[in-house]
């Protein structure tokens, strides 16, 4: 159904090719989150891998800094319909994290949990093989609290709500368990190229 009189402001073709359906390009970096930034002290910060309630391995901030580093450059897509091109991130890959913990992923799913009330579910297959990192730097500088610093999950091939801010750990789960937004009607997987915004998409 065409909307009477709507013409639209099309992006250049090069831009359109990089935009998933329903997205538009922004130059700024919008901030979306459910509540205030949590107060995080690097002296007491810990990052923990858990299987259910059982801790598997945890790192202090200094220990985390000593892990191998990974960099990624590319486009990011938010379910609120903005996309930002050519962003640069750096951190510790999920693969390197498991290697340092000397474990294989014990289940096929996990919940990423923040220092706030937030959580989000991601299949392990979408984190492994260099597809995701725990990011600590954006464009060469420590990630600001507004963007999830000191450390956030970063899974650029899924909508950005999967890249949980202020990450405190990853909890392996037997089944694919819905996180904060997924319980409120957002898609369990969230592929921007298939426009999986909400449950029925």
């Amino acid at each position: 159904m065409a909307t009477r009189g709507f013409v639209g402001r099309r992006s250049p073709e090069e831009t359109q090719k990089r935009l998933p359906p329903g997205q538009h390009r922004v130059e700024d970096f919008p901030i979306l989150q459910i509540g205030p930034n949590p107060t995080i002290d690097l002296a007491t910060w810990r990052f923990t891998l858990r299987e259910g309630a059982k801790p598997l391995k945890s790192w202090s901030w200094d220990e985390f800094q000593a892990l191998p580093r990974t960099a990624w450059q590319g486009d990011i897509h938010c379910v609120t319909k903005w996309s930002k091109f050519d962003t640069g991130w750096e951190g510790v890959s999920f693969d390197d994290l498991l290697a340092d913990a000397r474990i294989a992923a014990p289940t096929d799913f996990l919940l990423a949990e923040g220092y706030d009330d937030y959580s989000t579910n991601v299949p392990v297959a979408d984190l492994a093989g260099g597809r995701a990192m725990i990011a600590t730097h954006y464009e060469g500088a420590p990630i600001e609290p507004d963007h999830g610093g000191p450390a956030r999950l970063f899974v650029p091939h899924l909508y950005l709500w999967k890249s949980a801010k202020w990450l405190k750990g990853l909890r392996f789960t037997k089944k694919d368990e819905a996180g904060f937004w997924e319980m409120r009607g957002y898609h369990m997987y969230g592929d921007p190229w298939r426009e999986q915004r909400y449950t029925s998409d």
């Binding site: 922004v26 700024d28 970096f29 919008p30 901030i31 979306l32 989150q33 459910i34 509540g35 205030p36 930034n37 949590p38 107060t39 706030d116 009330d117």
Partner: peptide, 22 residues
Amino acid sequence: AATLLVEAGVAPGLIRTERFGG
């Protein structure tokens, strides 16, 4: 506003935020 409220003693978990634009 969120920072001021937390500093004034409001529990962060009670606060929900929504932002427009950058």
